[in-house]
Amino acid sequence: MGHEDHAWKGVGQMEGKERSSDRLSDMLSELREKEVLEMVRNALEEKVNPLSLVEELREGMAEVGRRFERKDYFRSELIMSAEIFKEAIVLIEPHLAAGQGENKGDIVIGTVKGDIHDIGKNIVATLLRCSGYRVHDLGVDVPPEAFVTKLLETNARLLGLSGLLTLAFDSMKETVCKVEQAGLRDRVKVIIGGGPVNEKVVEYTGADAFGKDAAQAVELARLYLEG
């Protein structure tokens, strides 16, 4: 397909089904990295509203999430789509006026004390960012106090705790306890995730819910911050 055919047309402006794959959102959901970036560059040159580009990209990510839920996509596609999204945002960001770009809510996230596994946590953080949340990722082996400090500093209403080892259950519990002691528990929802995490772990740690995968974590964020 030629470069000219790819001029950005915006949501719902393409004619006919056969051309649907020319939509930016479709290109992203089909992981066509080069085409996404080329289209974004062209659109920016044509002074297209950068926010509408971000919206298209988010729509693409939402479709990736739906495919993941249907098990048409696996985690590799989540990782690749998030990477393309990030690259596109890097191109778009300089064109956004200061303060422009919606923040759907602040979220503090990290792998809890004693655990350094971060594959799942990183995917969740990236997908949350793609969905429009401001994510404060504290990294791995994060002590409970650091989560509390960040919650106070950002006024975030959602805390995401991740861990793969069983020792993480205790660190999660301790973190929830510290959040409570800081008087924040009423306004902060706590979601947890990681390989062995299940309903029983939610009960043990005192968290509010768990996400069995990254897509579910995004759903929970939507529920708690926008619901």
């Binding site: 992981l31 990295e33 985690r75 590799s76 990782i79 690749m80 990477e83 594959i119 990183n122």
Partner: peptide, 11 residues
């Protein structure tokens, strides 16, 4: 890293 490995599969 797992993330980079997955990207390598695509790229």
């Amino acid at each position: 890293s797992l993330n980079d490995f997955v990207l390598d599969i695509f790229r």
